[in-house]
Amino acid sequence: MRMLIFAKRNTKEILRDPLNLGFGLGFPLVLILLLSAIQANVPVNLFEIQHLTPGITVFGLSFMTLFSATIIAKDRGSSLTQRLYTTPMTPLDFIVGYTLPIVPISVAQCIICYLAAIALGLEVSINILYAVLYIIPVSMLYVALGLLCGSVLNDKQVGGICGALLTNLSAWLSGIWFDLDLVGGVFEKIAYALPFVHSVEMERAVLNGDFAGIFPHLWWVIGYAAVAFILAVLLFLRQMKK
């Protein structure tokens, strides 16, 4: 019950910030529209709507990391967490309370992207529904990264690390904007050692109905999400004890 009350509060805090709505929902939409317009004038295979949309839905999740990290860091900075530590709230209440609101927001963001893509010509199929479902483990990964950053960084550092570094990593190392084969070498190896490109390729496979192609990407996503979550919980508990 406490965790749900806390989750409700966090949902309100996130959704009431116009910047969050602008970046979280508006920015991915702008990207879809812009890149589709480019595609209409200069056809590029990578920017075809069925290829582009899964990538944008994953990239949009980097803002979820920013949301969760920012709210935790701000709560720490304002001593709200300190106040709540002296109440009967347990560590589990905090962790679930911070995690829970982001998942439906991520799903909503993904649905909005697909609705825009349908309006731009994406063929309607049951695979869209599966793609929305498969975004959940990916969103867990991004939320865990947010929990991790929020537990160790202050809100200004969160802006730099999550707002700039993570969104760039998520953009450059995910194969959304350019084919990683074109760069190759160490860059490609690093990209495939990280979860971003696996998230995008998994979503692309799901949307194209290539369910065999989901693997091994799904394992990469789940593996990274699990490790990030465990680390995040340990760091959160550590700062709680501080």
Partner: peptide, 23 residues
């Protein structure tokens, strides 16, 4: 605490409601 420790995006009523829920 020394810092005001309130939830800035919530109204005065919602802040009090939050703490009631926590208790």
């Amino acid at each position: 605490p020394q810092e005001t420790a309130v939830a800035p995006g919530l109204t005065v009523y919602e802040n009090l409601e939050l703490i009631c829920g926590v208790h």
